[in-house]
Write a protein that binds this DNA or RNA. Structure first.
Lengths: 224, 224
DNA sequence: CATATACACGATACTCAGTATCGCCCCTCC
DNA sequence: GGAGGGGCGATACTGAGTATCGTGTATATG
């Protein structure tokens, strides 16, 4: 008989019990019992009770870091966009889990704080990457901080909207729109890109931000 | 004999013990004993062990909210600037306490998360205010999120720099500079475009004006 | 086949944060 | 002087998280 791995059984038991009886009312003993293991085993798989709900931030952070590290300053915008897309896709791919967790996190302050702390880790990652990218240009530290905060805020705004709507649509376009907004916001303050190419692009007044950004991105990609 | 109030004695005892023996190694009993009160009394004044280090976020949040609420949409930028100044001044005025707390928070993950969660409350406050201010204009939610995140990020960047430097200078100018950066960034985006077209062009840094003009003329010709 | 070894799990005991409750003492007001 | 209320101490309890030991099981090695 194919028994799922213990870590998964524990996570499912935790979510189920939190849903049924609430977070504070559920003890680690309850979770372990429901998963058919001992309390000791729970703490072997999860460092804390909260961890049973957030099992994947570490791996996701690793993936983001890898994507950013694989990029150079030239392709920074593409790398950031990709990285944020990876994060959002991670939520969307597991919509059911994301929604259940969202409902839970909204209710329990301890989990809310934990979620916020996790978000800060992403922001820090982006900040360090953008900081390296900007080098020692004037205000590099400030700009890195602002860009990282904006990118993360844009992602969170799109994600929260999607979660509040019950995960009923594909948020990709909204994410691209939001990221385009962020990039456009900072672009006018940045130095011109170093390039061997000359690109002149004109758009009609009614051109959507997506269209503009797509053209820019295509240009940046083509340089690699 | 003028004995300081119990809450203050507790806070001082907590900071002193955290400094001397570390956060995890200090129990609430130790803090209470050093302050000359019982453990019960400690929890009467502070909801948790962490609270003894962050005694003032609630009152500060109230002051910020009051300042923002006293403003209309017309004076929103001034209100936000003032509010952020109030927060920074609160740290600067108690430089010694701020610095000790900063050193402590950097070392203890639990305190770090708590600090981050507190920052999120400020960001939420700004977001709600900016959201009301923007009304139901297009992308109001996204823009409110981005502006709030940027304002808070700017403040934190300035504050962290000041703390890392040991609180040895007046960070007011740096804050104004950072806020000016944020405001300029968003003002640029808020202004409606007056031209019929949006032009996006990148050139190599050393491109001569002739080369630029030639490229543009070539593009324009090719459209005809 | 027998024994050694490594590992995963259970069991137990402990510390300490946080909660609840009771009783006492002192202060104030009637 | 008596009654009530609030601040404080004392006690007991729950539950998270840690440390440690024993035990069974599987794999390797003789």
């Amino acid at each position: 008989m194919p028994t799922p791995p213990i870590s998964q059984r524990l996570a499912e038991a935790a979510v189920a019990l939190f849903d049924e009886h609430g977070y504070d009312e559920t003890t680690v003993d309850d979770i372990a019992a429901r998963a058919g293991v001992s309390r000791s085993t729970f703490f072997r798989y999860y460092r804390s009770k909260e961890d049973a709900i957030f099992p994947d931030h570490d791996t996701l952070l690793d993936r983001i870091a890898a994507r950013l590290r694989a990029s150079t300053a030239d392709t920074a915008i593409v790398a950031i966009t990709d990285a944020v897309r990876i994060v959002l896709a991670h939520y969307v791919d597991d919509a059911e889990v994301s929604l259940r967790r969202y409902r839970l996190v909204r209710k329990v302050p301890a989990l809310r704080d934990r979620e916020i702390a996790s978000v800060a880790r992403y922001q820090r990652l982006f900040r360090e990457f953008v900081g390296d990218w900007l080098g020692d240009s004037p205000d590099a530290g400030l700009r890195a901080e602002l860009m990282a905060a904006s990118v993360v805020a844009a992602h969170n705004q799109v994600l929260r909207g999607w979660l509040r709507a019950g995960g009923t649509y594909d948020p990709s376009e909204r994410l691209d729109h939001a990221l385009g907004y962020v990039i456009a916001t900072f672009r006018h303050l940045e130095q011109p890109q170093e390039t061997d190419q000359v690109v002149v692009a004109t758009f009609s007044r009614g051109a959507s931000p997506q269209a503009v950004m797509a053209a820019i991105r295509q240009h940046l990609d083509s340089r690699a």
